[in-house]
Amino acid sequence: MNKILGKTYFSERVVKLEVEAPLIAKARRPGNFVIVRVGERGERVPLTIAGADTRRGSITLVVQVVGASSRKLCALEVGDHVTDLVGPLGKPTRVERVGTVLACGGGVGIAPLLPIAGAFKEAGNRVVSVIAARTREFIILEEEIRACSDEVIVMTDDGSYGNKGVITTGMEAVIVRERVELAVTIGPAIMMKFAAALTRRHAIPTIASLNALMVDGTGMCGACRVTVGGKTRFTCVDGPEFDAHEVDFDEMLARLDGLRDEERNKDITSV
């Protein structure tokens, strides 16, 4: 049982939770994720860690309501407990000094991008961040991203904030303007697919942090398998970060939807 220490609404459907987890706060590195479970009949859900405070012994998670499990998690208030929390999981980001890093986050993907961008900045890189969302209300953590970036470009699909357009428009503006050594992309699979296609054309090495379906998160089930460079890899123990140019995003998109019918059936019967 881990206590909720803080809760902030970024928007009606996006919530930032500060959860008590002193060991994870100490052990986690940028790029790690955790598995969270709410309620004795709850599902195990992977979430990338958005930040940690070792002094308070807590980690930060940013959750978007998309189904029954995220709804339960977002309904928790300060003082409530998550039933189970385990981590940190996955391999951390390999942070090196490479030069200029293009840090790209879409939607709630901006949250896990934050510690990674911060780590690259701390390692002495020039960090240009591109954060994107459908509308203004889904642009989150802008100030925090600014604090660890040399420059931030904000993109919204509808132009309600920042520049109008998708994330790749913002990325391309940087790529044609200056030399970029590495791109990092976190967000919806479809966004990462197009971001990877863009950087491949420009031959910029790119990391994608994948958000696959998982059960245990420790290599045991294989639900999170993904094809990378023609080989099957497990997102939980081999990732979650892979060479974006080698990831079969079409397969990944299909796999993310694999259990949709079964989930819908559950939703109907549990009403």
Binding site: R41, E43, R44, C221, G222, A254, R255, K266, S270
Partner: peptide, 28 residues
């Protein structure tokens, strides 16, 4: 890696540990 193909570990874990066979469980 097509949908509907899973390891026995995944299948049994979903059903045995997570109770996915029951409508009350969140795990599909």
């Amino acid at each position: 890696n097509s949908n509907g193909i899973l390891s026995a570990n995944e299948y049994l874990t979903r059903v045995n540990l997570m109770g996915a066979g029951s409508v009350e469980a969140d795990t599909p």
